[in-house]
Design a protein around this nucleic acid. Sequence first.
DNA 1: CATGAATTTTAACCTCGGTTAATGATTGTC
DNA 2: GACAATCATTAACCGAGGTTAAAATTCATG
Lengths: 185, 185
Amino acid sequence: MNFHELLLCEGNTLEKEKGEHVFMQGDSDKSLYFIQTGLLKAYYTSSSGKEAIKSFILPNDFIGSLSSIYAGQNCSFSLVSLETSMLVKIPFEKIVEYGKKDIVLANNIIEFLMRLTLKKERREHEFLCMSAEERYLALIESTPILLKKITQNDLARYLGMTPVGLSRIKKRVQSKMSKQGENNP
Amino acid sequence: MNFHELLLCEGNTLEKEKGEHVFMQGDSDKSLYFIQTGLLKAYYTSSSGKEAIKSFILPNDFIGSLSSIYAGQNCSFSLVSLETSMLVKIPFEKIVEYGKKDIVLANNIIEFLMRLTLKKERREHEFLCMSAEERYLALIESTPILLKKITQNDLARYLGMTPVGLSRIKKRVQSKMSKQGENNP
DNA sequence: CATGAATTTTAACCTCGGTTAATGATTGTC
DNA sequence: GACAATCATTAACCGAGGTTAAAATTCATG
């Protein structure tokens, strides 16, 4: 059995309208969600009420709170739908259970975790080595599709800055671009 | 077979003196390293020559470059020994090969990857939601042992700031602490 | 112990991005 | 089409931390 087959036989499909939450920070939710269509955002809310966006989740991505699933704590972030989205929900327990019996599935899970780790490493690298402006430029390069679907507000909170800061950076970048376009002496 | 047994039968032990590199950014190295004793640091070097520290590796940790192992690229960071260290090196290919045949090992790998992902998530959370000062305080709480073994320079580069900045923060924190110690009116 | 090298601290100056608040632009809704 | 609501831009001010360079401290090694 592979991951996809497991989803079909053990998963439940659910639909979330724009603005509906799948779970909230502080909840206990030991499920994994597979996104079929739509767009979601995973975000932290700090004690002072500020929002920081962990990730956007696109079709064919998975999402779930590892700290709830694995570390025995509550969800460290909230998950909300930005567009009407179709999800498949599956208890993580089921995955572990089948993974213990089925080696093909176990290797699917390994694949999936490796890809996830690689993604997290890239993000770590960006925060460690790049300025806010560089992170913005890198995102334009790597995921231009996302830019069309999300607000500037959300984009800023994903890049680790405020919407005001991002607006300033955009302006700065544009003026650099136009200078680059001029005939250089 | 479990992870530990695989290391015994397929791994090679090697010793690295302080200052010796295991691999350099840009190399191709598709091995996983298990640290028995000692201390290592994994760090990025930016195009402008600046260093940012990805992680410190302590006994019983694993380290390897996922981008080389898995993404078919070169190592995105360098790995250097900070103290004389004993490592066990194993080609990642071997792990995959055995993981395809042995379900106990496959589940060991899943365990290991989950723990790694959880660690990366915590670090992502710190960069997204905390100031440099808060990250410093959090590290004092969570890993005081590390503070005794590494230089301020390395600590700063791990927290995403300069040694000068860290020195300033330390001073600020100390003055706060001493104020807290006074009799509050 | 003495010397030099590395590490840490301090100071002066500067830049980037946060904060607050006002102003425009867009969007949705009745 | 008018209104509110949300979103984006702009401006003024501020503070955290970067940069550079010098001074102080610690460490290593002959």
